[in-house]
Design a binder for these strands. Structure first.
Lengths: 340, 340
DNA sequence: AATTAACATGACAACGTTGACAAACAATTT
DNA sequence: AAATTGTTTGTCAACGTTGTCATGTTAATT
């Protein structure tokens, strides 16, 4: 029941084990005849090269996905995107949830890299905004690709996948404006969170190009959670005059906003329009369904993985590349067209 | 910049590399004095044993989590539970989403095992119900732990973590009964799905011990999705007399049921009570919040991982062990107490 | 026919670790 | 003091692969 090795194949085929190695790795300089014979023996024994031994002579074929994010949809979509790319290229994925506030991340990653377990890392916000961490990993000889919010890569420390939250925030705010809304609140602002910041910047830009004055009183800070959405909306509903629309910084907050509005016997969207951001499964499971911005997480992650794997395989492209994603609006049922 | 090896440490400490190996692995038979010196050198060089080389001499210290489940909360919770156990024991996790209907799973797993990448597998439903797959993996010399629905392990092919859906289904049905409901529908039955089957069995048991006749017309088959919940509830609302309560097979279906009821201007729970199953984040984000059954996915998964790791480490326990989980009711706001 | 080049194959070391065994040393018993 | 035991340390092979280099074979050129 022991696993066949390259030597078993060689013995069966009557060639040296090095020749088998050549066949396995598709090197040239092997005659058709021998190649066929070896291939036959490989199938007969169901031989599979021992990855561990391969990695010892070459380089790790595993990457790590490091995240600090309570949003399971986001994580799963990212993970699936990365995985699909890994499968194509014969790489493996090591998952590493973490607490970005602790120094532990650094230690854990250093250990995975130092022990030759992985050769590269995909970083998502807020980890991806930590240049100190990135430099540290780079010094450890690891490859790094980061996913960031922004309309361009901030530097060329490492290849970057950037997602244009600013533009998307502007788009969805413009949509509300077009529907006749004049008093639009923004909830879920987190100054330390680049995506949140970007969405707010887009909101401000859109209002700035309209004739509407920005009212800082209806821009509320808060977490990216349902509970926080409820809380912020409660606060908001006390303001006079009451906003006619709410731009929630993500779908979960938006779901909370709907819940809170409902508790006050307000109709959504007739009495209050609410938009989300991300197009998570949530947005289709609220009542009414959310108008939101589609964020193709799996595609974003796949792109990051593709970059990382290229980097590890040393595809001749010395300079770190970067790539940007623009996001699209998806109109559903949570925005009311005001008559006027 | 090259990573230090055991030999570098040995040279620095002035001992043989084998002695360093002994210190690293905490073997006895090393004098305090030498041990301390070596330890100092290890720290100085920041030496970390090369996992790849270790695995070559010992056994893989990675396990795979294989799932075929569209429910991200479930997957993430499972994953986190497994990961927490892996961390403790110094194991790594390889993630493997799959399509259980394809033969590909078998091939992929065979490859991961055959190439020495992993040494064990955690299987969730429906993969865990596939005895043919389990036997296949066992023949490949892999260790297997499966997570199943049931009130006991069905056989001792492999250690099993079983979750008592029957008992839980009975509990929550009894809760509805206690609240005075006499016409209770069951939606989301999937005959091929053991959990679903178990929950329905619990429902039947509960009704059987009450004086209420089971009406097969209000037991509806369907998928575990929001959309299916909407659809089934629409059908249900046509039945005469209309049920006063719905037992949805999971929270997502229940969320769909609430949505559908709402569209018909029915109040939840006053006009119709709805319960879910799983206690996913969903259940706290519907309006009203769902009464449901708490399923401690992370704990279940952690237990499975602990079993698997024990198995791989050959902790002397020849016979496969098994472990069962009982589930508890969580009462929230979606059940109405009928007066009578 | 002899020389060269190109191709095909094989021998062997190396990767960094652990396990089996042997050697050296110290402590205890005869 | 010699013999026995036990503890500490070292030597070497092995794990399964790939890289380097040498050798053998064939075809092309002189």
């Amino acid at each position: 029941m022991k696993k066949p090795t390259i030597k078993d194949v060689a013995k069966l085929a009557g060639v040296s084990f090095k020749t088998v190695s050549r066949v396995v790795n598709g090197e040239s300089c092997v005659s058709e005849q021998v190649k066929n014979k070896v291939q036959l023996c490989i199938e007969q024994l169901n031989y599979q090269p021992n990855r561990t031994a391969q990695v010892m002579r070459r380089a790790p074929k595993s990457i790590a996905f490091v995240y600090d994010n309570p949003n399971s949809h986001y994580v799963i979509e990212m993970q699936n995107g990365i995985l699909s790319e890994c499968r194509k290229k014969g790489f493996e994925l090591v998952i590493h949830p973490t607490d970005s506030h602790s120094e532990q991340v650094k230690k854990d990653l250093a250990s995975m890299i130092g022990t030759n377990l992985i050769g590269g890392v995909i970083l998502t916000p807020p980890l991806s905004e930590n240049n100190q961490l990135i430099t540290y990993l780079l010094n450890l000889d690891a490859k790094v690709v980061r996913i960031l919010s922004g309309s361009q890569a901030p530097d060329n420390l490492s290849p970057t996948i950037y997602v244009d939250d600013i533009n998307a925030g502007q788009k969805i705010t413009n949509h509300l404006l077009t529907c006749g809304h004049k008093r639009i609140a923004f909830i879920g602002h987190q100054p330390s969170h680049m995506s949140s910041e970007g969405r707010l910047t887009g909101y401000r830009k859109a209002l700035a190009t309209s004739s509407i004055q920005i009212d800082e009183n209806i821009i509320l800070p808060g977490e990216f959670t349902f509970e926080s959405g409820v809380e912020m909306t409660n606060k908001l509903m006390e303001k006079k005059p009451r906003p006619t629309a709410i731009f929630a910084c993500n779908d979960e907050i938006a779901a909370g906003a709907i819940f809170a509005a409902r508790l006050r016997n307000l109709r959504v969207p007739e009495d209050i329009s609410i938009v989300g951001f991300e197009d998570s499964p949530f947005s289709r499971q609220t009542w009414p369904k959310l108008t939101t911005v589609h964020q193709p997480n799996a595609d974003i992650a796949a792109k990051a993985a593709a970059f990382l794997i290229d980097l590890m395989l040393d595809v001749p492209c010395a300079k770190p590349k970067s790539y940007g994603f623009q996001l699209d609006l998806v109109e559903r049922d949570s925005v009311f067209q005001l008559a006027d």
